[in-house]
């Protein structure tokens, strides 16, 4: 966990330290905010990859939403 966080945290910090001042110099405050808001989940998710941590996949949400529909349809056609 720490190793991955260190790796990607450093990478993100270096890139952000290079990009953020250029954005702020042009007065792009909103851009900088969106950039930071996207960078945080990016670093967290990449940390999971490096440390091989599994969280339940969000794709199960699709199953939860559409599962009843699939069961209903297969019931209707007699599958």
């Amino acid at each position: 966990m720490l190793k991955g966080l260190f790796l990607f945290g450093t990478l993100a910090a270096v890139v952000a330290a290079w990009e953020l001042p250029r954005m702020l110099k042009k007065g792009w405050r909103k851009e900088a905010l969106v950039y930071l808001l996207l960078l945080i989940p990016g670093v967290i998710m990449s940390t999971f990859v490096v440390s091989l941590i599994r969280i339940p996949t969000p794709l199960y949400l699709i199953e939860i939403v559409y599962g009843p529909v699939i069961r209903w349809v297969s019931h209707m056609v007699g599958g």
Binding site: F8, A12, V15, E19, Y35, L38, L39, P41, G42, V43, I44, M45, S46, T47, F48, V49, R54, I55, T57, P58, L59
Partner: peptide, 15 residues
């Protein structure tokens, strides 16, 4: 760059 990190992370977490 941030979207790249997100896609990289999510491609592993997705299943």
């Amino acid at each position: 760059f941030p979207v790249g990190l997100m896609i990289f992370g999510y491609s592993y977490l997705v299943s």
